[in-house]
Design a protein around this nucleic acid. Structure first.
Lengths: 228, 228
DNA sequence: CCAAAAGTGTTCTGCGTACACCCATGC
DNA sequence: GCATGGGTGTACGCAGAACACTTTTGG
């Protein structure tokens, strides 16, 4: 074994910040820890990386084990490695950033071992480790990202109304948006497909739309830059 | 020791992608490896993280040890951890992204142990490990970042001409920019301070400017968004 | 006086923004 | 028929883009 191998090694974990949207506000999926340290405290889903899996596989595995979520939008966020961030010793965590459609939201009792629950970002409990810091970083990333990448669609049902889409942008950006301008701009890009389906409910039905990722990707290749 | 500690641990390293600009093109600082594996191959400066230092400290320490660079602009880039990226076994690397002013460029022979050299990004040698992949990721980040953050000034001398600044933007974005529009736009923001100093040389002297970070930060706080 | 780089203004077009009323449905 | 949310068009102002000539210096 070469010299370099004799360095003591930090432990390596992954943690996932899972965002959802309930029509009114942005939510985060947390689990209640079943082991020490921080037993009983809410925390980001995550755990130790295994030797044979890559980092994204580790994040997806932990996410499924702890929240039953699969096939979500997942992107690496940042790696947190300050000594002292874990009372057990040196633990470095590669944090991930996930977006889930409402159809994917796990039902209550869907997770076996640990308890999982959605929290509105304006009403969060105390979190284990430095998870509040990780969460803040993820939020900043989401707010920045939504303005120039079409990530909002990852948080909505596959078929959605323009009002839902607008509410999502308003929730994430934290400011009101003019309805007519919003619609005009988004429909001018032709990656939003109006469907011949409508919502039911107590009032005038709203037309459903879907996001056409293929058309979007085509536009991007032509040098198009999405911006809101 | 709790159960979690019994997991085998990957080794943890940091690697730095150091960008420079020589007036014509973008450059990267590489070191020639003095040890196996990949002995004699060019590689990103970097090395193992020590147990008592955080990740940024590790990156700065390795950078100084291997290239004599200090006090550079440094930002975390991405963490690379595929099994098999290092022939010695499982090694996860937290990659960093650095920008250095020409005044800071290390002179030849400035580095003791290892040989360091600048390479134009259009003329790179074969690299060790997955460092070509890391470098590509860093380049994408730089190209994206320069459009909405004033990182270009980190690559120029403290006092620079507008022509230099334009050449930098053209080199990074890979397209020509209209001189009058470029100047008009940048000078409209008042964070570019014209000095009463000029370049010498064979032709008409050019006025030097400096970037006023304080004014820039003030504007950002007011919700201003830089964009080019 | 010539070569080389610095510096400077105007016009046009398109996009962001502001803004108010009618429509369809369930109850 | 009324309450509720869905859906639509226009006018104005500003900022980006296109574009060519004069100035200053050294050799």
């Amino acid at each position: 074994m070469p010299h370099t191998y004799e360095f003591p090694r930090p432990a390596l974990t992954v943690d996932c910040v899972v965002f959802g949207f309930d029509g009114a506000g942005l939510q985060v999926l947390l689990i209640k820890r079943g082991i020490e340290p921080f037993l009983g405290t809410w925390a980001l889903p995550g755990g130790f990386v295994r030797m044979e899996e890559n980092l994204e596989e580790a994040a997806r595995r932990e996410l499924e084990e702890e929240t039953s979520l699969r096939d979500v939008f997942l992107e690496q966020l940042y790696t947190f490695g300050d000594p002292g961030r874990d009372p057990r010793g040196r633990v470095v965590s590669v944090a991930w950033f996930a977006l889930v459609h409402p159809e994917q939201h796990p039902a209550k009792g869907d997770t076996d071992a640990s308890e999982a629950a959605w929290f509105h970002i304006s009403d969060l409990p105390d979190l284990a480790f430095d998870h509040d810091h990780i969460l803040t970083t993820a939020l900043e990333r989401l707010r920045g990202k939504i303005r120039y990448q079409p990530v909002g669609f990852e948080l909505l049902p596959k078929r959605f109304t323009l009002t839902q889409l607008q509410a999502l942008y308003e929730a994430i950006l934290g400011r009101p948006i003019d309805k007519r301008n919003f619609r005009k701009k988004l429909l001018a890009f032709d990656f939003l497909i109006p469907l011949d389906e409508f919502t039911g409910g107590a009032h005038r039905p709203a037309r459903l739309h879907r996001f056409d990722r293929r058309k979007y990707d085509t536009l991007v290749k032509k040098g198009f830059l999405f911006e809101l």
